[in-house]
Amino acid sequence: MSRGLVTGLVLAAVLAVLPFVWPGYHLSLLTIIFYWIGLAACWNLMCGYTGYIDFGSAAYTGVGAYVAGILMIRLHLPLAVSILAAGMGAALVALAVGWPTLRLRGAYFAIATFALAEALKQVAEEWASLTEGGIGMTFTIRLDEMTYYWLYLGLSGLVVGLTWWIEHHKHGYGLKAIHEDEEAAAQVGVGTHVLKIKTYALTAFFIGILGSLEANRLGYFKPDDVFDVHITIKMVIMSLLGGMGTVIGPVFGASFLQIIEDILGAEFINYYLVIVGVIIVVVIMFMPNGVARTILLRFKKPAGAEK
């Protein structure tokens, strides 16, 4: 326990000073990697642990971006306040959507969220008097590049740490029980509906914050960017590659995919989604536990009875 803590602190310190040693281009790659670790970890915390699949997480990056955008650009509120409000706005939307859908079969949740992101995108397009519609919004106040890196590092660390904490505490056992058998979980006293909603709103909160920060970092955004279904796709595949329902899975998945994307570059984007789709299908067919975990399990098979 304390050794784990020391390792964690050392790791955090190393990562925090990394940009000084390795500035320039690498800073933006590292920044973007931690951004995606944060997003994938949020997705994994809800979907990997409960087994309810959210296909519309981009709704929350979008809501976050627009809440922050409107508050900062139109109302001239400070950045910190706007970002926090962005998280809360996303959490509120998640509560509203989670309440009716998380009582039903996972199928309803999967597609309702899928539809949600699209519907919100349309609203952002149409409600031009508030959102500038398809023209998009431009931030005038931004932070320095290094700050974004530290914020993403901190946020992704926080979400991963939170996942670890939940995994080892009451909530984690409740979530896992829900994943295994919801009816049986209720029979032993797990308030399944509320537990799912809480978790969902919590992750939406962080996605909203990350989404608003990223929109701010890029300086300009429009509905197509922040409600982009590919944001959700990446969150799904990063969790899937790393192993759903594990603390460290999204860290591996997000780093791996983001680095690959960086190496292959923009040329590749057309083929990218095809390949991502094929990977999803193949992973589900042959390695439903995630690539990282499947490989790990193969290594330690003899002792592998504990998890």
């Binding site: 896992k176 029980a177 295994e180 058998d181 049986a184 979980a185 029979q187």
Partner: peptide, 10 residues
Amino acid sequence: SQIAKPFARM
């Protein structure tokens, strides 16, 4: 339950 439903992976 009639059909024993353990949380199989726990």
